[in-house]
């Protein structure tokens, strides 16, 4: 690892002031530290945001669940409030990586990183989330731009993620047996007027599968998507799964999610 300067910011303002083109925020460090160790990324400055009090914590209202950006996966997994309001969200957090990762990794870091096989982005899409930053509010559908790409500007800090509580929901992940990231994960949430089918792992970026969402809006039953033949031409293919297999998994996991709702 190359040398770098470590800063601990006391508030969002200081954090974004310290940010530059050669910096990264340090939340859980679960992505940043390994990539620095492997020489895949080098930063001049690491700006630790874990000590910014405002960024941690969970708030539940009648309509939404708001999670501070620096809240750890383990906290979401164990939160009674989240379990009650959106049980699928706490079980998603419980299924991320391993205990070490869950004890450090954060929701803000996860969605800022926007790994194509990360779990949280699918929750954001499915649960009509709003991303609160120190500058603005961004709708989830406009936040995830592409592989490891988001709408965040340099120095823009995620402060919290606000999820809309659905009628029912379920997240079904087919994990990569090695890393436990999603080979394919499907998050289905049913609201009064519509259904979201958020898919992660299958393509270069999380997406809402409109075709399945439409079918399920008509009839919220796994039979309405059974046997759907998805186009796999733009799906990921790697040593863990071919595009064809991923396409099939999307339908299978979606069916499981509907059945589990």
């Amino acid at each position: 690892m190359k040398e770098f300067n470590y800063h601990s910011a006391k508030d969002s303002k200081e954090a974004s002031k310290l940010a530059s083109s050669g910096s990264a925020f340090l939340a859980g460090g679960m992505t940043t530290i390994p990539s620095m160790k492997l020489g895949l990324a080098t930063y001049k400055d690491l700006i630790d945001i874990k000590n910014i009090k405002k960024l941690s914590g969970i708030k539940v209202s009648g309509k939404s669940v708001t999670i501070g950006a620096a809240t750890k996966h383990v906290e979401v997994a164990n939160s009674k409030d989240v379990k009650k309001a959106i049980p699928s969200l706490s079980s998603l957090a419980e299924g991320i990586g391993d205990p070490q990762v869950r004890n450090r990794g954060t929701i803000g870091g996860s969605i800022a990183n926007n790994d194509p096989s990360a779990d949280y982005p699918s929750a954001c899409i499915a649960l009509n989330a709003t991303i609160h930053t120190n500058q603005r509010k961004i709708e989830a559908s406009k936040f995830f731009k592409g592989m490891f790409e988001t709408a965040l500007k340099k120095g823009e800090l995620i402060e919290a993620v606000e999820f809309q509580i659905p009628e029912k929901s379920s997240y079904q992940k087919h994990p990569n047996p090695a890393s436990r990231y999603a080979v394919v994960g499907v998050y289905i949430a049913k609201y009064k007027s519509d259904v979201n089918v958020a898919v992660t792992g299958a393509k270069s970026c999380v997406y809402n599968d409109k075709e399945m969402a439409k079918a399920l809006s008509g009839n919220f039953s796994s039979s309405s998507i059974d046997g759907m033949d998805l186009d796999s031409s733009d799906m990921n293919s790697d040593i863990h799964a071919s595009a064809e297999y991923r396409a099939s998994l999307v339908v299978t996991q979606a069916k499981k999610a509907v059945d589990a709702c």
Binding site: P177, A178, S179, H240
Partner: peptide, 27 residues
Amino acid sequence: YENAEYDETGQLMTGSYMDYTMPRADN
């Protein structure tokens, strides 16, 4: 689970625990 895989140029494709599946207790 486990498999060491090289590509045709001889690069190890499974050179970390992200890609080489070590079995775990829950398996």
